[in-house]
Design a binder for these strands. Sequence first.
DNA 1: CCGTATTATCTCGCCGAGCGAGATATTCGA
DNA 2: TCGAATATCTCGCTCGGCGAGATAATACGG
Lengths: 149, 149
Amino acid sequence: MRNQGPEMEIVHLLRAVTVELGLHSARFANHNGMHPTDVRALIELMDASRADGEMTAGRLGAALGLNSAGTTSLLDRLERAGYVRRVRGRQDRRIVVVEVDERAVELGWSFFGPLIGKAVEFLQGCDEREREAIRGFLEGVREAAAGSE
Amino acid sequence: MRNQGPEMEIVHLLRAVTVELGLHSARFANHNGMHPTDVRALIELMDASRADGEMTAGRLGAALGLNSAGTTSLLDRLERAGYVRRVRGRQDRRIVVVEVDERAVELGWSFFGPLIGKAVEFLQGCDEREREAIRGFLEGVREAAAGSE
DNA sequence: CCGTATTATCTCGCCGAGCGAGATATTCGA
DNA sequence: TCGAATATCTCGCTCGGCGAGATAATACGG
């Protein structure tokens, strides 16, 4: 094997975390009769409402790597289940603004909330320098993964 | 929103990292005419050969959340593409041991190696206490995600 | 203003990953 | 030795997602 220093242990740990988070999402999907893509879509939508504001059908599909046909059927599923609403844009009536139903937000928090709570708890037990190390590591990995487009 | 302390920023960053790593895997899959599940399978297989030793068809399917039919067709795809070989178990001839071809290992390193390299580089710039904070955070998140079975 | 290019989404037909049910081959236990 | 248990495979099917193209609304040059 190429490298077996103490650094590789953390790299493998990060991979294990992503696998475990993926399985956690899959369990959430199963419990609610959803597909992995639907969960990813809800997370993307909730994140957008926290940061960017509105999310359109096209932007959502792009974020998930779906084409327009796939995006339409995704929104059909989510809307049929009552998790989102389609709202035509006011100034530009071609676009479809996707609004997340409050029920879906509550459902998401009930499943991911405890996990987030544990992470926050751990971080509160850290001092500023330790938190900065964690932030720097995550930021670095994100940039490295995003950079090799 | 429920919580907007500095801790939540790191939680969102972790989510962003998992999304970005997922997209990175998807790009790898596209470049090689594979599906996301195939990439996950190769990672699982390479990880098993690093730690546990042999990987059987059944254990692989379980790790990926596939049933036996799906596992068979996954192995058919991977074998057809030359990434793995099926080898019947010696003492128990019911089981199928899955061996990863060296070509697949090289392919994986060519794509994920640079990413791993950047992470290792960052970690080497940390002192022991910072590394311990990162390890503790990841370990905690993994356990929290795995614990809520 | 009008016609055309562009943009955002939807419809249709199809492919194939993954599932359930059950077949097959091998091993284990009474 | 024979039935139960185990590991994998086969068959038929469902449905998520794709490509191609239709539809509707906007932007823009003349």
